[in-house]
Amino acid sequence: MTKAMIQIFQTVGRATLGVQISLLMLLMLCGMAIFGPLVSPYGETKIVGSAYAQWSSEFVLGTDAIGRDILSRLIYGARNTIGIAFIGTTLAFLIGTALGVSSVLAGGWVDQLLGRIFDMLIAIPQLIMALLVLAIVGTSVETLIGVIAVVDSTRVYRVARAATLSVAVQDFVESARVRGESMRTILFGEVLPNVTLPLFTEFGVRFSSVFLFISSLSFLGLGVQPPFADWGSMVKEYAPLLAFGKITPLIPAVTIAALTISVNVVVDWALRLHTAGFGR
């Protein structure tokens, strides 16, 4: 195990500064999300001071309109936003990949039917669709994740289907078919290992966009609901402070940007490493 660790450190050591910074940033933000309650000075919804307290040693980033600690809310916000984005994207991938791959392997009318359904879903603008559904069923964490999973799975379906299509025509898949292998073995043994690369890239891109999507929804008041913290709604909440020359509202905006950029840089880097590994 230690050998693998050393190898990982060496690989990271060889990466460019940008990649190293992005990795550090991701680790920090994910650490915040995972260990939030342990590191945050106060509770997420607890009123701990007077409204709009200045930056001080007691409240590092000051307090908000009703006296909640902003740093604590930022840390809890990481947990909510990243968590929802991660679960939503993962679900979208499970749905999209499963349907995309089986659509190709089944072929015929199954492929046609699924293809048309997803075409229909993709034709509706993402944000409008989400607003509509959330307006109908009401906003909660579960519905938010559900909406993201469904809306995003349409994109994943397309990528998965295209990637599978180029693998499925290869002789080794045909060979497995005439050998008499079950659909399951062909799917998990032959096809999936060969589509992970494009899907992994897509995961990075989709995660970033889902993350931004939640932030926009929250900014519009349809995402994570108060009193729970979320980076998007924090930007909205603190926006008036900008008029007083405070930079506090920019901090959640910066963390949003930092996470999105870091994810993209790291995914690009991993991809380059992987393709270089193929050449050997």
Binding site: F172, S175, G180, P193, N194
Partner: peptide, 27 residues
């Protein structure tokens, strides 16, 4: 081939022109 039995499938095997696409690159 989908209607052939396992034994029937086993008795006929194919070797392809391009070995690089006939073998799963990940295996």
């Amino acid at each position: 081939y989908r209607r052939r039995s396992m034994k029937q499938l086993r008795e006929f095997q194919i070797i392809y022109q391009f070995a690089d696409t006939a073998l799963n690159p990940r295996h």
